[in-house]
């Protein structure tokens, strides 16, 4: 019996094939398959091809359930760069793959927890939208924490 294959399309229109029984680890895809059989291509407009390749690599893993936890951890550890992890987490959120999202978010939190404010803003590319006065007010309020 041949296994059914699904085709996923990334934001930049690249196509990826994946076996259906592996793809349905994603709750989003599972629901789509349930609804209309998903014979056609599944578009993922927010996921770029590099991230999708990672997600597919993750979905294709062949791990015993008891090693799975370690595998997910290692999987995100090896891609320990914040931009990649954020893309991965967002893809996992869109596709509703809980384990992957948990691991990616945990890794980002681990990476940024020892950063200074400036480092956090830089790593996550956040612009400080507050005036120095506002910032000082908060600093004063929680002076003991700094």
């Amino acid at each position: 019996m041949s296994k059914k294959t699904l085709t996923l399309m990334s934001k930049d229109k690249q196509l990826f094939n994946i076996e259906e029984h592996l793809a349905v680890q994603s709750v989003t895809i599972r629901n789509m398959v349930k609804e209309d059989g998903a014979s056609s291509v599944i578009p993922l407009p927010r996921v770029d091809s590099e991230t999708l390749a990672l997600v597919i690599e993750y979905l294709n893993r062949q791990q015993a359930p008891e090693e799975d936890e370690d595998y997910v951890k290692k999987f995100v550890d090896e891609r320990g760069e914040i931009p990649t992890l954020l893309e991965l987490a967002q893809a996992a959120l869109d596709l509703d793959i809980k384990k992957l999202m948990d691991a990616a978010c945990m890794k980002v939190a681990d990476l940024i927890k020892d950063f200074t404010l400036e480092e956090v803003r830089e790593a996550l590319r956040i612009e400080n939208d507050r005036t120095p006065e506002e910032e000082k007010a908060i600093r004063d309020e929680f002076q003991w924490a700094f």
């Binding site: 931009p83 990649t84 954020l86 893309e87 967002q90 959120l93 999202m101 996550l124 590319r125 956040i126």
Partner: peptide
């Protein structure tokens, strides 16, 4: 060019 900004991400994330 330089990857995503946290600001682009969904609040949920």
């Amino acid at each position: 060019i330089i990857g995503p900004s946290m600001e682009d991400l969904p609040t949920e994330l």
